[in-house]
């Protein structure tokens, strides 16, 4: 039994600079944790570390019970990460991008279409190459690529960026549904009003160090079986 994200004295070095300088963090199943902090504080690096994309130079870390050094592939299969970039193939259509992610996660047939429906992606966009979509439209397709994988942990870096009001409400609704279904969300954002309303807890990071942690507002703490 342990948190779904467990970091102890975690250090991640980027270009010789410690972007994370000894971070300790426990995140429990079912939480929505807002990571706030100024530019360059280490928010994105924290998310990338938890996604198994950034390397752990020192300290220890486990995600969903898997070791962040030795079992990164296992972690990646189970998390959904949305960074500043959308990670879409520009020549493929919205539908083809979502289908690629669905198949890579061995999602049930037709989940791609159901996900596009859930995210209210208009039919006329779906057959367009992503290169021809607007920034907001691409962001929504990128979210669909995360949703279709049904990840256990959602790692979202400024997910509201580029989305219009209704799309932001839609995203918040999707996140609440995911949490209700047992997922956990770690979201980095500068849009504190919106994200704080969504979050069950806020973590502040400054200079690569987690400087303050609020306990979950409802006191709930989920657990995860260690693999």
């Amino acid at each position: 039994m342990e948190p779904v994200i467990l970091l102890r004295d975690a250090v991640t070095v980027l270009g010789g600079f410690p972007a994370l300088a000894g971070a300790d963090l426990d995140v429990w199943r079912g939480e929505i944790v807002l990571v706030s902090g100024p530019n360059g504080a280490g928010k994105s690096t924290l998310l990338r570390l938890c996604a198994g994309l950034a390397s752990l130079a020192k300290g220890s870390g486990r995600v969903l019970g898997f070791d962040l050094v030795r079992q990164r592939r296992e972690i990646r299969r189970r998390v959904g990460y949305l960074g500043h970039a959308n990670g879409l193939y520009l020549e493929l259509t919205a539908e083809e991008n979502v289908r690629f992610w669905a198949r890579s996660a061995a999602a049930p047939a037709h989940d791609d279409v159901a996900t596009l429906d859930r995210l209210e992606v208009p039919t006329r966009w779906r057959s367009l190459a992503v290169a021809h979509l607007s920034a907001g439209q691409r962001r929504r397709v990128a979210l669909a690529c995360v949703v279709v994988r049904r990840p256990d942990i959602w790692l979202l870096d400024e997910p509201h960026t580029g989305l219009d009001g209704p799309s932001r409400d839609l995203l918040d609704g999707v996140l609440r549904e995911a949490v209700a279904a047992g997922a956990t969300v770690l979201v980095a954002s500068h849009e504190l009003d919106r994200s704080a309303a969504l979050a069950t807890r806020t973590v502040r990071i400054v200079g690569g160090v987690l400087s303050s942690t609020d306990e979950p507002s409802d006191g709930s703490r989920g657990t995860v079986d260690v693999a």
């Binding site: 990646r76 960074g83 970039a85 990670g87 890579s104």
Partner: peptide, 10 residues
């Protein structure tokens, strides 16, 4: 579009 990360994340 940062697809390299995506390929690893799959």
């Amino acid at each position: 579009d940062s697809g390299r990360d995506s390929l690893r994340l799959t």
